[in-house]
Write a protein that binds this DNA or RNA. Structure first.
Length: 557
RNA sequence: UGGGGUAUAGCCAAGCGGUAAGGCACUGGGUUUUGAUCCCAUGAUCCCAGGUUCGAAUCCUGGUACCCCAGCCA
């Protein structure tokens, strides 16, 4: 962005600012993903919050992999998460893993047992659920709740030693089976899993649960403000209970905010995974996915995503952001810094009858409002392509483009007038015959006459054939899966359109992977970082330009 | 009366007892060799009902609506 950014002043920053005023400490935050999937735009909200708020206050922000469940996690994900974070432009003060603390966590659990605040329970999963009660009725005590400390110590030691099978025993905090908050009804804090962990290998066969791990990991790292999403509000009493009961040297403050939800998109890991597995998209990096890796491939800039996160605000309100906000962020980031070039998506051949056989070079600036971006030569010739949409045999009112007998400006070139239309046997328009006015070279008429339309073009003999992928929203309902429907029934069947015979100007021959351009009058495009090659250029449409003609057209119908 | 949250314009969101910021979207207008950009203009009495106060979106009382919680997931 060109404009200097103002620091947001949301309720979390207000709390932190106030804390900083009244206490002496260095702010420490953390971004704690579980490495069990790819990051998406919703994670970006949390990332920006944690890293930015630390930076604004000369604090630190850790990246911590919350890897307490080896059955779901994979090294592949930790690498992708690190790459996404770097791409967004963030650097963590230190890289940590919850698994780094398994030893300390185990000691804390033993401490709990020793103070009679935890016990080994032999109930089955089904029984535990039954004993837990429900939303309206209190639970009842486990028959194992009154084991002696010695017995618990012995059992827990043997759990760790691998003497029991998965599911046979668990360690539970001894709190209150009648608590109104279900999280406090003797929550399980350790379970047995005979699994190889991606970091600790086969050292452990008991793994701590989230509620026990997260607060203690925060405390161990000296996190001052532990920021998480709303669904953990109910867990805060438990978070605080562990820290108070165990008398940890510091007690981080958990603060919850609303997670991001975006119109016409899904954000849950389960749903995204389903899209990938059912081949409804082409992988996690499909440009239609809200994953960071997908958005990166689509052509979104890290700046635009950070700008978006600033714009949407931070509250506890359960809200849904309109796609338009995201689109605005990417457009306003790209507009000042992206070179303009010409590309004809759906070509229509135009022969300029009175133009000589010899081609000529014209100079075209890369940016209309920024001469410092320079210019490039484009070749003009007797046979060119224009956009099919830019010609209408029977134009409606307010259509400013080409039509029989009408004159338009070819951008940076000449005025041309359509003399006749050539059709094939089926009546389809296959070619236009036009004439040009040599006096209008460069695009202005010495006699001062005006044309309302300016259209883009490429020279047939000099253009490069490219594949262009047009993307639209993945879903055609604002809230896919709302009110019990299957979210997959809301998939937009036209979320991708592949144009394999588009014609782009010659200067694009040297376009590099991931390079972005504005195709004049069409939108912003990005060289696909997977499928594009020197032999076959492939562009992704990042976003269209705002299009007031499209609105007029829509109103006409 | 299970517990925990949230309600300010179409979508976000400031506001913290002194008379409703801003962004996005929309609509109208101006500039323009992109129907782009840019520039101007236009909209709410704050979920409802009472109450306190000279004064309430802000405080109190009582309602209503919506979200989250019953994984040996995070």
């Amino acid at each position: 962005m060109q404009i200097s950014k103002s620091i947001p002043n949301d309720f979390i920053r207000q709390i932190i600012t106030e804390d900083l005023k009244t206490k002496i400490f260095q702010l420490v935050t953390r971004f704690p993903p579980e490495p069990n999937g790819y990051l998406h735009i919703g994670h970006a909200k949390s990332i920006c919050l944690n890293f930015d708020v630390a930076a604004e206050n000369s604090g630190r922000c850790y990246l911590r992999f919350d890897d307490t469940n080896p059955s779901k996690e994979d090294l592949e994900y930790v690498e992708s998460i690190k790459a996404d974070l770097n791409w967004l432009g963030y650097t963590w003060t230190e890289l940590r893993h919850s698994s780094d603390y398994f030893e300390q966590l185990y000691d804390y659990a033993v401490a709990l047992i020793k103070t009679d605040k935890a016990y080994v329970c032999g109930l089955t999963g089904e029984e535990i659920r039954q004993y837990r009660g429900n939303l309206k009725e209190p639970g009842k005590n486990s028959p194992y709740r009154e084991r002696t400390i010695e017995e618990n110590l012995d059992l827990f030691t043997r759990m760790k030693a691998g003497e029991f099978a998965d599911g046979e025993l668990v360690l539970r905090a001894k709190i209150d089976m009648a608590a109104a908050n279900i999280n406090l009804r003797d929550p399980i804090i350790y379970r047995i899993k005979h699994l190889t962990h991606q970091m600790t290998g086969d050292k452990w066969c008991v793994y701590p649960m989230y509620d026990f791990t997260h607060c203690l990991s925060d405390a161990i790292e000296g996190i001052t403000h532990s920021l998480c999403t709303l669904e953990f509000e109910d867990h805060r009493p438990l978070y605080d209970w562990f820290l108070e009961t165990l008398q940890t040297p510091c007690h981080p403050q958990q603060i919850e905010f609303a997670r991001l939800s975006l119109n016409y998109a899904v954000m849950s890991k389960r749903k995204l995974q389903e899209l990938v597995e059912d081949n409804l998209v082409n992988g996690w990096d499909d440009p239609r996915m809200p994953t960071l890796i997908g958005m990166r491939r689509r052509g979104y800039t890290p700046e635009s995503i950070r700008d978006f996160c600033d714009k949407i605000g931070l509250t506890k309100n359960n809200t849904s952001i309109e796609m338009g906000v995201l689109e605005n962020s990417i457009r306003s980031d790209l507009d000042p810094k992206t070179a303009r070039v010409m590309a004809v998506l759906k070509p229509l051949r135009v022969v300029i009858e009175n133009y000589p056989a010899e081609a000529e070079q014209l100079e075209a600036p890369y940016h209309p409002n920024d001469p410092s971006m320079g210019s490039r030569p484009v070749t003009f010739s007797k046979v060119i392509y224009i956009e099919q949409d830019d010609f209408l045999e029977d134009p409606p009112k307010k259509f400013f483009r080409l039509a029989p007998g009408r004159e338009v400006r070819l951008r940076y070139a000449y005025f041309i007038t359509c003399q006749s239309v050539v059709k094939d046997e089926t009546g389809e328009i296959i070619e236009l015959r036009c004439t040009y006015d040599p006096a209008t070279k460069g695009g202005s008429a010495p006699d001062g006459r005006k044309v309302k339309g300016t259209i883009h073009w490429v020279s047939e003999a000099h253009a490069i054939t490219a594949e262009i992928r047009l993307y639209d929203r993945l879903f055609n309902k604002p809230n896919p899966g709302a009110s019990g429907t299957d979210f997959k029934t809301a998939i937009n069947p036209n979320s991708i359109t592949i144009l394999s015979n588009s014609k782009v100007e010659a200067s694009l021959a040297t376009a590099e992977s991931s390079q972005r351009f504005q195709f004049e009058r069409q939108g912003y495009f990005c060289v696909d970082n997977v499928d594009s090659s020197a032999e076959k250029l492939v562009f992704n449409r990042i976003v269209t330009l705002r299009d007031s003609w499209a609105k007029i057209e829509k109103d006409n119908r």
